[in-house]
Structures are given as structure tokens and as C-alpha cells.
Computed example of a mutant assay.
Amino acid sequence: MRAVRLHSYHKQPVVEEVPEPRAVNPFDVVVRIGGAGVCRTDLHIIEEQWASRSGVTLPYTIGHENAGWVEEVGSGVSNVAVGDTVILHPTPTCGLCHACRAGDDMHCVNSTFPGINADGGMAEYLLTSARACIKLDPAVQPSDVAALADAGITAYHAVRKAVPLLYPGTVCVVNGAGGLGHIGIQSLAALTATTIVVVDRNAEALDLAAKLGADHTVSADGKHVEAVLDLTGGNGAEVVLDFVAEQGAQQDAFAMTRRNGSHFVIGYGSDLDIPTIDIISTERNVIGNLVGTYNDLVELMVLAQKGKVTLHTRKYPLDAALDALADLDAGRVRGRAVLTP
């Protein structure tokens, strides 16, 4: 089969032939990929930012946002069958550890993360597990929803955590309206009555944000912190969802929170430098977010299949994976790039 393989850090991956995976263990599932999302994390992987954390051995296949059709199942699989349309939770988990039993999938002590520390889904087939499979309506096209498996669930997970803080009359700032941010906007609109303020430097992204439910849009032109403070009577927002968190955006996000506000860090790439006195004197919170749980993805797919959350995609054939990565890196993708093997 064809797969997008990374052979060396700081060099572009290549599309090459590799053996097809097989279902060997009882709960193995082989999925024929119908859509594989292209994520900024893939760029960070190429740049070696994940090497020390993942421990992966090169070469390997990247791609951690995957959906498709079940091709083969192990002897113990009962929740899906060959031919079913599925979206895949990004981390196959053990189901036995404390985190799994608490529904906190992302902290399973025995999980793998295809596309991060194991072969991923930028390929014709992917080996995963029954615990990662969410069965979809057969009418759903995997390429239309694949990126919800990471970009979508990550945005939804952060919003879900913020919901108790976003009672009517509050303000939530969405910092960055790209692949994750545009899902965050829709999730906020579906789950809360908060006032949604979207900050982005791209005019097209702001136009899309307004169509998706933003109450106010602010251009990140160097005066955006002041603009947000003006919109909030000088106080700042109860919640800032920072989908950028690099190149200074992470400092701006914290500056846009009010006293006792919460800065949710979702994007990454730069350090967050905050004097501790600024944290204790205002009781502001900084909250990390790592993808989301299986149940988060189930809930998100309900919203998606009801039309309340729509993924805006630009599709590329698998052989054009390098074009998709280059377009993402250059900021030419509105919404999410998706490979279609």
C-alpha cells in the first residue's frame, strides 16, 4: 500500500509502498482510510518537536486524524464489522487502567497514538483497535469528518471543559480561527450562550468565523488585546481559548483574560512567560488541553451528524501529501486539509 513516511527529521516525508497491516490480536481492527487530516502537529513532528516525547523509531507513517471503512477485524471484535463506516479516536487504549475506567482516555497508561508514536493513517490502511472505533451513519463520507478525530475533538474537549464557566452574560475569546478554532466557535455556539469574540490575523478566517457564530471579530493587528478589553469594558474575557499559543499569541491570550479568568492553552509552539504575581494577584488560571476523550468524540459526532458542527475542508489525493503540508505551513488552508487515499 502507499503511505506517507517520515525518514529523517527536518526533511519532507515521502510517499512510498509499504506492507499492508493485518489484524493479528483479538481486538485489532484494520481500517481502509477514506480521509486523513493534515495537522500542524504533523509539521511539528517533521521539525522534531515530538521526538523526545514520542520515542518513535524512524521511518514511520504520519497522520493521526483518520476515518474510513472497516476492512478486517480480530476474533474478539464485536462493536464493528467489516464494511462499517468509522471515525477513529486518536489513541487506542487498554480499557483496564484507572484513567480508562474513569473515562479519561487521553491519559491511559498503555495507549498508543498512531501518527505520533506508531504508524498513522496517511496511508491506504491503518491498524487500530476496537476501542478506538466509533461507528457512523453509512451515508457519512469519511473525508468530510476525518479531521474531527483530532482538530475537532481537541477543540470540543476544551469547550466542554469551559462550559461551566460560560454562563449567559460571559465572554469567550477564540484566539485563532483556523482548523481547530473554527470547530471551537461552532462548539461554543452549540453548547453555550456566551458572547463569542474571535481574534485572527487573516481576514478570510474572520469572515468564516462570523458565518459560524462569532458575535464579534477582531483583527490580530497588534491592537487586538486593547480591542478585546474595549469589548469587555476593560475587564477581559472569562475564558480565552488559545488555538495558536506561539509567536506571541500565547502572551496576548493571557492578557485578554479577566480577573479569575481562564486561559485554555490548546495550540503550542512557544513558551508562556507569566510573572507568578500576575497569576496570584488576579487568580487567573492556565489550563492545558490534550486532544479529548472517546466520549468527547462521540458527542461531537452527534453534533456533526445533526449539522451543528461542520468541518470546512480542502481535499488532496494521498500522492499530493507534500502539497497539503506546504499549503498548511504557508497559511493557505482555510479550515482543514484532508488526504483522500
Rank of each mutant, 00 (worst) to 15 (best):
M122G: 02
A123R: 11
E124Q: 15
Y125C: 04
Y125W: 09
L126P: 04
L127G: 11
S129I: 01
S129M: 12
S129V: 02
R131V: 14
A132R: 10
A132M: 05
A132H: 10
A132I: 03
C133Q: 06
I134F: 10
P138W: 12
A139H: 06
V140S: 05
V140M: 13
Q141L: 13
S143Q: 11
V145R: 10
A146F: 08
L148Q: 01
A149P: 12
D150Q: 09
G152R: 05
A155F: 10
A158Y: 11
V163G: 07
P164A: 13
L165S: 12
L166T: 02
Y167D: 02
P168C: 01
V171M: 06
V173G: 00
V173W: 00
V174F: 05
A177M: 06
A177S: 13
G178A: 04
G179S: 14
L180D: 03
I183G: 02
G184D: 00
G184P: 07
G184L: 10
G184S: 09
I185Y: 02
I185M: 03
Q186M: 09
Q186G: 10
S187G: 06
A189F: 07
L191M: 14
L191K: 14
A193M: 07
A193Y: 01
T194W: 00
T195P: 00
I196C: 07
V198S: 05
V199D: 03
D200N: 08
A203I: 14
A203M: 09
E204W: 03
L208N: 04
A209K: 07
A210Q: 14
K211N: 14
G213Q: 05
A214L: 11
D215E: 04
V218E: 03
A220W: 00
G222K: 09
G222L: 09
K223I: 02
H224Y: 06
H224D: 10
V225N: 12
V225G: 07
E226K: 14
A227T: 11
L229P: 00
D230P: 02
G233M: 04
G233E: 11
G234T: 09
N235W: 00
A237F: 08
V239T: 01
V239E: 00
D242V: 00
F243E: 04
V244R: 01
E246V: 11
Q247N: 15
A249F: 08
A249D: 05
Q251H: 15
